[in-house]
């Protein structure tokens, strides 16, 4: 069965790849994922804020006590190699690139234009085949309106595109007033791909201690539905290739993602839970399913259930909402 697909301009033998996760930094795991047949490796985000924060905090922790007390003018050895910055990440990009044959997609989450540009360039120099820009941003300022947030993302993409020659995908959050408009603007700004969606890590509240708790729940197939809807809405309407990220756990999930228009299917929770082998399993099962259902190729299925081609497009639109609410009541 021909499962081949094109994502960010890369001709891939099939659409299944691990999404951005800590395993993308672990050479052993990366090798295992490639062995399991991953179509590409997506590395987790380099967070510009984190680098700045660590740089400030470390400088503060090391410099403030220094040169204060006669007997201890410093508390740490003066090591040339100790540098706070993206080097550690870039070194990993280099190593991952050397370790695997499949495309390596580095990810970047930044807050300033300077940071985006510098790091994107460095990633490209380190050998990344593509970059996934993660525009994770939580607006908390009442004076900052949606358009400001969107414009900034567009500006950043434009700048990064101008700075690097490799393909650039944008990983979106589902919280835009109009995802099609936002996607259209990104498409115009020459995004090579759109990744739907980023999963927000939302803190929980401990009602006993009145503290915020950072929790990380792995996704479930439930989360897929949101992706399916917007993949279907965008499929066939943007030049950028589309990736589904979040909620793909079974072969059925993966097939749905492709049917709604995904060129690539990223898996994280399922891989973390079941190990890299799950990539191979899904790929095999997908081939079997396509054969059983007498598809000629994956391409034939790609986008078959999108807004334009689906037999009941209203299901993706507002009518569906009304319909479900009513049926729920009736149950």
């Amino acid at each position: 069965m021909d499962l081949s697909t094109t994502y960010l301009g890369f001709k891939l033998p099939h659409p299944i790849m691990p999404g951005a996760s800590p395993w993308g930094l672990d050479l052993d795991k990366v090798r295992q994922m490639e062995d399991a047949g991953a179509a590409a490796i997506v590395m987790p985000s380099l967070f510009e804020e984190q680098i700045i924060k660590e740089s400030l905090a470390t400088t503060d922790a090391m410099d403030t006590p220094a040169n204060s007390f006669a007997e201890a003018l410093s508390y740490f050895p003066n090591i040339e190699e100790f540098r706070i910055g993206p080097e550690e990440y870039l070194e990993t990009v280099r190593k991952v690139k050397a370790a695997v044959k499949v495309p390596v997609i580095a990810s970047l989450n930044g807050v300033t234009k300077g940071g985006w540009l510098d790091y994107a360039k460095l990633m490209a120099q380190a050998g990344a085949d593509a970059i996934e820009l993660n525009v994770y941003y939580l607006a908390t300022d009442m004076d900052e309106c949606g358009r400001d947030v969107e414009n900034r993302a567009i500006e950043l993409l434009t700048a990064v595109k101008a700075a690097v020659k490799i393909p650039v995908a944008v990983k979106l959050s589902p919280f835009y007033s109009s995802i099609p408009c936002m996607a259209g603007l990104l498409d115009k700004a020459k995004a090579d791909g759109l990744v739907l969606f980023n999963r927000f890590y939302q803190p929980d509240i401990n009602v006993e201690t009145l503290e915020m708790e950072r929790v990380l729940h792995l996704s479930t197939s439930e989360e897929l539905l949101l992706r399916l809807r917007w993949l279907a809405v965008l499929s066939g309407r943007v030049n950028a290739s589309l990736a589904c990220s979040g909620g793909v756990h079974t072969v059925a999930d993966a097939i749905k993602a492709v049917m709604t228009g995904a060129n690539a299917v990223q898996m994280v929770s399922a891989v973390l839970k079941n190990g890299p082998a799950v990539i191979k399993t899904i790929r095999t099962q997908m081939a079997e399913w396509l054969e059983k259902h007498e598809y000629s190729s994956l391409e034939q299925m790609q986008g078959s259930m999108n807004l334009a081609r689906s037999p009941d497009p209203s299901a993706y639109e507002r009518a569906n909402y009304v319909h479900i609410l009513q049926t729920w009541k009736a149950q």
């Binding site: 680098i51 740089s55 400030l56 400088t59 540098r83 910055g85």
Partner: peptide
């Protein structure tokens, strides 16, 4: 002095 502690500094 600060180069290795990060560009931001």
């Amino acid at each position: 002095t600060y180069g290795k502690k990060g560009e931001e500094i």
